[in-house]
């Protein structure tokens, strides 16, 4: 059943400083509210347990995409539409743009944010695989200061992550080291728009003299968190991407993921699709 609206509070701070002070002064009382595309769905379903929210949508400090020689930095409020229309991201981080274009429909892309996608912490979210494959770092801010941490490791379990109640996710930073990489992103779902992934696969790789110099392989919807498959990456290093290597990599991948049966798919299907996508990715690196 729908929630009783008068029970909820959505307060609008004038600045980031004001938002952080509110978060600090009443620990745990306030939670951020960005584009609302996850929170409003819970509200409608009567499953939004928390009552008090800070409307961060208008905070310009959390918006914008900036580039330096070494990094591209995105505000946490960057929408999927903004991702897709940024020329640097299109050129250097095509998997993030593809993820954005396959997230919901246009109305969702105009409102949903990268920060919300990260902190909502769904293992089926579609941007995190791309962000992890691009070695993203994230910045958390509070009145105590700012800290940057690798996105890899931020999520520790289902909906568990290293963020304190007084912190906001402020920015996401991508190192501009993608020159010469092959980018491979596949979202497998029932329909192109609006569908939640059954499996989401993002990987980059590079070969030299026929051997795999570097791969970064990430799979979503196959474990309680999105998984960067570091053991599989290690097993691939220095190998030729031939049939034998692919078989060994698939065997390693199976040990790193733990898909389950749910309403969208089965463990068996997810496992097979993840292996197929890994094999297909490695085959594209063969030439």
């Amino acid at each position: 059943m729908r929630a009783f609206i008068p029970n909820y509070q959505l307060t609008t701070p004038a600045s980031l400083a004001e938002a952080l002070t509110l978060l600090e002064s009443e620990p745990g009382v306030w939670k951020p509210f960005a584009g609302g595309t996850d929170l409003m769905v819970l509200l409608e379903a009567g499953r939004l347990a928390h009552r008090n929210y800070i409307n961060i949508w208008g905070l310009n400090e959390l918006r914008g995409i900036e580039a330096t020689d070494t990094h591209v930095t995105l505000g946490a409020l960057t929408t999927y539409t903004e991702v897709q229309t940024n020329p640097i991201l299109r050129r250097e981080f095509p998997m993030l743009c593809q993820a954005a274009s396959e997230t919901g429909g246009l109305a969702i892309q105009n409102r949903g944010t990268l920060g919300g996608n990260i902190v909502n912490a769904s293992p089926a979210a579609d941007s995190p695989p791309a962000l992890l494959a691009y070695d993203a770092e994230i910045e958390l801010v509070s009145n105590r200061g700012s800290r940057w941490l690798p996105y890899q490791g931020f999520h520790t379990g289902y909906k568990q992550m290293h963020i304190d109640p007084d912190e906001l996710l402020a920015r996401i930073r991508l190192p501009r080291n993608t020159a010469g990489l092959t980018h491979y992103y596949r979202k497998v779902g029932t329909r192109k728009a609006q569908a939640i992934s059954k499996v989401c696969f993002a990987a980059v790789g590079k070969t030299g003299q026929g051997k795999l110099m570097e791969t970064r392989i990430v799979v979503g919807s196959v474990a309680p968190i999105v998984v960067r498959c570091v053991q599989t990456e290690a097993a691939l290093r220095g190998q030729r991407p031939d049939e034998e290597t692919i078989a060994a990599a698939c065997a390693s991948l199976v040990r790193e993921i733990s898909p389950i049966d749910d309403i969208r798919s089965t463990a068996k299907y997810r496992l097979q699709v993840a292996k197929n996508l890994l094999a297909d990715f490695l085959a594209t690196l063969r030439t």
Binding site: G36, T37, L106, A107, R111
Partner: peptide, 24 residues
């Protein structure tokens, strides 16, 4: 947010009005 029947344009962009709280 799934069906688009509630679509409106806010500041030049389409949104689902069922997902937009009045504070925004």
């Amino acid at each position: 947010g799934e069906c688009g029947a509630c679509t409106v344009i806010i500041d030049g962009q389409i949104v689902n009005s069922c997902l937009v709280p009045m504070a925004q």
